[in-house]
Design a protein around this nucleic acid. Structure first.
Lengths: 351, 351
DNA sequence: GTGAAAGCGCTAACAT
DNA sequence: ATGTTAGCGCTTTCAC
C-alpha cells in the first residue's frame, strides 16, 4: 500500500496548523475556519494521508454497541446459523472495542417482536442488524431508528423502505426458480408436491412467497402441464404431518414422486418418508440444517439449496463495524448472496 | 465479550511486578525469573487478560511483510482470481501495518519458479503464501523457509511435507467425483469425452490428476460400461483444438455428447462448439472464469464446479496476518473449501 | 532479572 | 478558532 506512513503530525506541519485542528477537520466537528479547513483538506489529499485506525480507536475510548434482532432459535435450526455467524463476528468487533449484542423474538408473535424493538431502542445502540418478520412493526421500528440517526442493516429479507444501510440475503425469487430446475432436471414430471406450513396458508408473514413464485414461474415456463399439489402441515405435530402426507400420497404414483418445501424444514418430510419406508422420491429443500444434511447423506433428499446465513450475518456485522469505526459508506447496499447447490457429494465440504 | 477491559497494568499490579516484566512473559523473551513468570501467568489466567492488539501494533512499529508466490496471470484467467483475493486482503493486512507482496512465475517454466523463490528468500519476508506447481523445487524452497523460521501457507494445492502452517484449497479427488455425478446425472451415458492438455500427457506437473482419478472412480462405480475417450489438445492453438475435436467427434452420436475438462479451460471447447455450431452436448467444466460463466449463460456449458479462489487466497493472507500479529496458531491446518455447483440460474449471484 | 520512562498516532479536554 | 497536552495500552530501550 502506501509506502511511508504519513501521520497527522506531518499533515499538521505541512498545513501550518496543529494536530488539534487537523483532527477537527478530520471528524468534521466544526470550530475551524474555512481557510484552515481547506488547506488541511488539500494537504491531506496531496500527501495521501490515511488515518491510523488503531491509534484512533486506542485514543478515543468510544463504547460502540451493535445489537442484532433475530428470531429465537434452538440448536440445529435455521436461526441458530445466523446466531453462529454473529458470534463469530463478535470477536472481530471486539478488537475494535465494539460490543455485539443479540435480542431475540418469537417469530410467531408480533407482540414479542415489538417488545424486542423497544428494548433495543432503550439501549440506544450505535447500530442495529435486523432480520424482519413482521412488516408493519419493522417499518415502524426502523423509522424510529432513522429518527435517532442509528444505522440499521437488514439480513435474510428486507423491506421496501430505503433508509437501510445495507442488506445481506439470498435472492428469494431466483432461489425458487433454481429449485424448480434442480427438482425437475429435464425429467418427465407429471406432478409436484409442495409441502407448506399451515400458518402460511393465511398469508400471515410468509417469508417464502417470493421463492414459491419463482418456483411456479419456472414450472409455468418449462412444465406447463405439470400439476402442483399443496400439502399443508403443522410442523409442530408429527402426527399431523403423517396424516396430511398419507392423504396426499394415497393415490399411487408410477414414476418418481417429486416433493419440495420452501422453508428450511424439509427434514419433517424426510422423517415421514423414513418412518413409512417410502422410496422413489425426488426431494429438494432449502438450508443446511444438520438434519437436512443428514438426509442428503442418507439419500432421502437429493439436493438442498443453501445460503451461508452465518456468513451473511457476519458480513452484516462487519459492514456495521466498518461504518462505525471507519465511517465507510458500504461497498454495495444490496448484497444478494450466492445460492449453493448441495448434494451428497459436496455437502461435507460446506461447513 | 469480556466486560471490563483489563490491561497490562492491572496484571502488573496484581502480580506485583512492572509492565515490562509482564510484557516479557507475554512474548516469551526470557530474562524473567521462573517465579515472576509463573505468578504473571497465573494472574493473567485469573483476570482473563487479553492483550489489546492495536495498542500492541501501535507501540511495536514492526514492519512485517507477506509475500505470495503464484503463477503469472492475465485478466480473466484462473490465477487472476487468486490475485484478486490477495489484492482485497491487502487492505486488511495494511491496517495491521503489514505489507503484502506478490511474486509471480511462469507455471510452465521451473527455472522461473526457482528464480522467484530466491527472490523471495532474499527479501526475507515474515511469511510466505505459495501456490505450488513444481513439486521438487517447492519442497526445496519450503525447506529453506523452515530453516529461516518463516511460516508458509499452501494455496490451491499442497505437497506432502508437514511443516506448512496451513492449506486452503479444494478437495481435488472429490471434485472429480462430484463432476462425474453432475455430468451424468442418472442419464444413460455411453461415452464421455475427456478433453486434456497435451502437456499433461507426460505427467509433467499436472495439478488435476487427483480430480481425474475421482472422476474415473465415479464412472467405474456407477457407469462401468461407459467408454471414456481422451482428447489431447494444445490450448494455445485453436486450430489444433478444432482438429483434435473434429477427429474425436467424427463418429456420429445418437444421444447427447458428454464432454468434460478438468482444468479451467472448458471455454476452449465452447469456442469450438460455437464455431462449428454443434449442439446436443452436455458439457461440464471447472472454475468461474468470465468466459466459462458466459458459456453457462449461453447454454453451451450446463454446469461448472467452482471454488472461491479469491476467498481462499484472502483466507490465506488473513491466517498469516493473524499468525504474525496475534501469534494465533491457526484454527484448522487443512482447509478444504467448498465445491460450488453453478448453472445458468445461480451463476449470476456467484461474484 | 527487573523497573522506569519514552514514545507509537490519535483524541479530547483545556487553555488561549 | 486554534494550540497544547495528557493520556489510550503496549513495546522497547536503558539503567540499575
Amino acid at each position: 500500500m502506501e509506502q511511508t506512513k504519513i501521520t497527522i503530525n506531518d499533515v499538521a506541519k505541512a498545513a501550518g496548523v496543529s494536530k488539534g485542528t487537523v483532527d477537527r477537520v478530520l471528524h468534521d466537528r466544526g470550530e475551524v475556519s474555512r481557510k484552515s479547513r481547506e488547506k488541511v483538506l488539500r494537504v491531506i489529499e496531496e500527501l495521501g494521508y490515511k488515518p491510523n485506525v488503531y491509534a484512533s480507536i486506542l485514543a478515543s475510548q468510544k463504547k460502540h454497541t451493535i445489537v442484532c434482532v433475530i428470531p429465537e432459535y434452538s440448536p440445529g435450526d435455521f436461526w441458530s446459523l445466523t446466531a453462529k455467524g454473529i458470534d463469530e463476528s463478535r470477536e472481530t468487533a471486539f478488537r475494535y472495542g465494539i460490543t455485539v449484542n443479540m435480542v431475540t423474538y418469537d417469530q410467531y408473535d408480533a407482540e414479542s417482536f415489538r417488545n424486542a424493538c423497544s428494548e433495543v431502542l432503550e439501549s440506544n445502540p450505535s447500530g442495529v442488524i435486523i432480520a424482519p418478520m413482521f412488516r408493519m412493526d419493522t417499518l415502524k421500528f426502523v423509522k424510529e431508528l432513522s429518527a435517532k440517526n442509528i444505522p440499521y442493516i437488514y439480513i435474510d429479507s428486507k423491506l421496501e423502505d430505503e433508509d437501510y444501510f445495507a442488506y445481506f440475503g439470498m435472492p428469494m425469487y431466483q432461489s425458487g426458480y433454481l429449485c424448480a430446475d434442480i427438482l425437475t432436471g429435464g425429467r418427465d414430471v407429471r406432478k409436484v408436491y409442495i409441502v407448506r406450513i399451515e400458518r402460511d396458508k393465511m398469508g400471515y408473514s410468509d417469508p417464502t412467497v417470493a421463492r414459491r413464485t419463482g418456483f411456479l414461474d419456472y414450472m409455468m415456463n418449462h412444465y406447463p402441464d405439470t400439476e402442483t399439489v399443496n400439502v399443508f402441515i403443522n410442523p409442530k405435530d408429527p402426527k399431523d404431518v403423517a396424516a396430511k402426507l398419507d392423504e396426499a400420497f394415497a393415490e399411487p404414483c408410477d414414476g418418481l414422486r417429486y416433493i419440495v418445501m420452501f422453508n428450511s424444514r424439509i427434514h419433517l418430510v424426510v422423517d415421514y418418508l423414513r418412518n413409512r419406508d417410502i422410496g422413489g422420491c425426488r426431494v429438494v429443500g432449502f438450508d443446511v440444517l444438520e438434519k437436512n444434511v443428514a438426509a442428503l447423506r442418507s439419500g432421502h433428499v437429493q439436493a438442498l439449496i443453501a445460503q451461508h446465513s452465518d456468513r451473511q450475518a457476519a458480513s452484516a456485522v462487519t459492514a456495521m463495524v466498518d461504518r462505525l469505526v471507519l465511517g465507510s459508506p458500504v461497498v454495495r447496499k444490496d448484497n444478494y448472496t450466492q445460492m449453493d447447490i448441495l448434494n451428497c457429494y459436496n455437502c461435507d465440504y460446506y461447513m
